[in-house]
Simulated scan of single mutants.
Amino acid sequence: MRIAIVHDWLVTYAGAERVLEQMLHCYPEADLFSLVDFLPDQGRGFILDKPVTTSFVQRLPFARKKYRTYLPFMLLAVEQLNLSSYDLVISSSHAVAKGVLTGPEQLHLSYVHSPIRYAWDLQHQYLRESGLDRGLKGWAAKAILHYIRLWDTRTANGVDGFLSNSRFIARRIHKTYRRDSTVVYPPVDVSDFPLCLEKEDFYVTASRLVPYKKVDLIVEAFSSMPDKRLVVIGDGPDFAKVQAKAGPNVELLGFASSDVLRDHLQRARAFVFAAEEDFGIAPLEAQACGTPVIAYGRGGALETVRGLGVVPDGPTGVFFAEQSVAAVVEAVQRFEREGGAAIAPEACRDNALRFAPERFREEFMAFVEREWMAFGKGR
């Protein structure tokens, strides 16, 4: 059986790439395809140093830094990848990878991290935050996103079986494509985040500083509580905006190494998380360290954090109901009032262990084998 794995783009090692890494451990003989490959030589270990077949987008001007601006061309580019010699095609898709062309004698399984967020339910937020909600450029962007939605719906018909990274995304897939999917949670390398029972008197948040992460909201909330200390780890286009809202009790570290991140996650009193994520790996890394999570109660966090007052035993965090300063403040106060006695570091660690890489590989390969057997019987 010849296997091809298709990934959207290879430029960094983030959440989607951790999933790809485990896919390649499941099927090391697979050939790898991607629209672009700009991984540095020293950062290719997670793809087993495999050669990558890329698309024409790789050769477009300024593609190394501006590849995202070529999204409209990627719809065409992914269809030009020639996969006709493969029996099994697995796409790892948060943008266009699921749009590869396959024939009736090929099985195409797609692990969807999310349907294209900025083309579907997050379109209005994306346009507003990009300054494209008005004017001629705005109308052009809306027209392009309309075309992307048509393409995205059509190409869903070429997928034989869908996997989703959470029940939240499974609902989004059903809403978008009217297709059911099997949930296989992404892998979290909990072994890299050892349990620490001794906590210090500070809170931490860590993420890329972009609008939807709502780090500025967390900073504003803690700035209004000068008796509580917050450490912010991460960099991004919103750094200046976040910095402007930071009081003396808020420390911005900017980009930090994995060692610094691990050290703060282990020692922090709690990890604060205000984004509506599809899944969210950072809260699980914190829990692996035995650190509770104070999280916005929407999206993937509802599946990775055991909320105080939500589950009967073994809570690992506190939820807040809206993305507002007041809600964050109230959640922190509730955590200090009730969480200290109710949330145990060992319970946080046990919860995180449910998402270990070994579990991902087992569930992923079982799904592929079931689909392959059913596909063979149907021919």
Rank of each mutant, 00 (worst) to 15 (best):
R154Q: 09
F364C: 11
F279G: 00
P211V: 00
I3F: 05
R208K: 10
D278R: 12
S55E: 02
K66Q: 11
E285L: 11
L127V: 01
G254N: 07
Q323W: 08
E277C: 10
L197C: 11
A352R: 12
K199Y: 06
P292Q: 10
F355E: 08
F222Y: 10
N249Y: 08
A374Q: 14
V96D: 00
I148P: 00
L10D: 05
F355L: 11
R267D: 04
V190A: 13
D263G: 10
Q125D: 14
F73S: 13
R149C: 00
C196W: 02
D235P: 06
V190N: 05
A366M: 07
G299K: 06
F193T: 01
E220D: 15
D133E: 14
G158L: 05
E346W: 10
L60C: 13
R334E: 09
S164T: 08
W139M: 13
D189T: 08
V325S: 03
Y13G: 11
D216V: 09
L302K: 15
V310L: 12
L132F: 06
V190Y: 02
T69N: 11
F360Q: 13
F73E: 10
A274E: 00
V112D: 00
A206C: 15
R334W: 07
T155R: 10
M225F: 08
F271P: 01
Y203N: 02
G236A: 06
D278Q: 14
C348S: 03
F38E: 03
S84I: 00
P61E: 08
F38Y: 13
L10C: 12
E330W: 09
R306V: 00
R370E: 05
A342N: 04
P61L: 09
G280K: 07
E220T: 13
R379S: 08
L163P: 01
P312H: 07
H108T: 03
P226D: 01
R262Q: 14
V204F: 04
F360D: 10
S130V: 01
F38G: 04
P104M: 07
Y177R: 02
C196Y: 01
Y212G: 03
G317K: 04
S91L: 09
L308C: 06
P211M: 02
R171A: 15
R44A: 13
A326K: 14
P357V: 14
D180E: 15
D201P: 08
L101Q: 13
L101C: 13
E303R: 09
F162C: 01
H108Y: 09
K142P: 01
Q123W: 00
N82Q: 12
V332A: 08
I144K: 05
D160P: 06
Y203M: 03
S207R: 04
L32E: 06
E129Y: 10
D263K: 12
F168G: 06
P72D: 03
F56G: 10
K175N: 14
V242P: 11
S164F: 04
R306M: 08
F271Y: 15
K65F: 15
G280Q: 07
A356N: 12
P61H: 09
D189I: 11
R269V: 01
L60E: 03
F320N: 07
A156L: 05
G45E: 14
